[in-house]
Amino acid sequence: MLKTFASDLIKIKRKMIWFLIFLGPFGVVALEAVNFGLRYDYLTKLYADDLWGGLIGEARYLAIPALMLGLTIIASMIAGIEHQTNSWKQLLALPISKLRVFTGKFALAAVLLFASSTLLFIGIIILGIILKFGTEIPFLSLLKMAYFPYLAAMPFVAFHMWLSITMKNQAIPLVVGIVGTILSMMSFNFPDWFPWKWPSLENGWGDPIYSVFAGLGLGLIIYLMGSIDFGRKDVQ
């Protein structure tokens, strides 16, 4: 698996992918900077008890659409590298099982999005310090804000990886991803079983960890189904 991952890392050289990985969290932090910059007095009054908590809460709402849109584009770009010049036939005629090829691509998307989440984590800390919110940084809730939505969004990472690989025309996965992003933004009224609600970490039990477990569980199932389907199909 490390081999396919290393090979895929070479393939994304000089693509916009790395830039996007940076752009997502940077965009969230920059928008929060504008948000707090323009309404500094109002927001600091509103969150006077817990300045860091306020910032984290605000950032979380922006991070969800960024994450959903980001995973759509990343999955599409990773698959697009092979679609572009029909490299699937060359890749899959190598002595590498299709399961490993699929897993390598999925792992690449997961690692890249993890990197994005980490950048968001660091970015928000820097922003908080610049905004003079003090040095009592609530690391635990910061970690939750940065990584929990990412873990809860795993079904979408797996689904988009499969969809983008299966379809040569990337318009369809992109449309599905954009619709999903919108759904996830207005998911508050949806029931708890609705996967688009999970990245928001809201659920009836009041503990975000359940959203994470649900995401990881369904993510694993979709990944397995996707890899079986990929292995079964003839290569175009």
Binding site: A6, S7, I10, K11, R14, T85, N86, Q90
Partner: peptide
């Protein structure tokens, strides 16, 4: 197989390196 498969944004060397790792 048929028309060549390659990764256009990579150099010839990198193209082969991506395959070499797998082999």
């Amino acid at each position: 197989v048929e028309y060549p498969s390659y990764y256009g944004h990579l150099t010839a060397y990198e193209n082969l390196e991506a395959i070499r790792i797998l082999l």
